[in-house]
Simulated assay, not measured.
Amino acid sequence: MSTIKIKKGDTVKVIAGKDKDKEGKVIAVNMKNHTALVEGINKITKHSKPSAANQAGGIIEKEAPIDISNVMYSHKGKATRIGFKMDGDKKTRVAKSTGEVID
């Protein structure tokens, strides 16, 4: 199994599926299932009964997880692959297209 190179807070571009070419910020990454929750991407509708937390109930729209393989890191508006480079004793992420350090 390869390493997940996408982290929480990254801006990603969807490269496959119904939301192709859309961009969003990663809310959460699930390492076990290889999925990511991206803001505004892969929206689903969920029907909920009235409860103490949600008095009205009804139809709620929320994001569903999207597979990591269907998103790509967005660097300066362009989708790019991510590599790793050792900077002394620190491991840093690098954008493959430009060679710039990401974080």
Rank of each mutant, 00 (worst) to 15 (best):
M1D: 09
M1R: 07
M1Q: 08
T3N: 02
K5W: 02
D10Y: 12
T11C: 04
T11E: 12
I15P: 02
K18F: 08
E23F: 12
E23L: 14
E23I: 13
K25R: 15
V26L: 04
K32I: 01
H34G: 00
H34V: 00
A36R: 02
L37T: 00
E39S: 13
G40V: 03
I41H: 04
I41E: 03
T45I: 08
K49V: 15
S51I: 11
A53G: 13
N54R: 14
I59M: 11
I60R: 13
K62T: 14
K62H: 07
E63T: 05
E63K: 06
A64E: 08
A64K: 11
I66S: 03
S69V: 07
N70R: 13
N70Y: 12
V71W: 01
Y73E: 01
H75P: 00
K76L: 12
K76S: 11
G77T: 02
G77R: 05
K78M: 06
K78D: 03
R81A: 11
I82D: 00
G83F: 01
M86W: 10
D87T: 10
D87W: 09
D89F: 15
R93T: 02
R93Y: 05
V94Q: 00
V94Y: 01
T98K: 08
G99Y: 10
G99W: 11
V101Q: 10
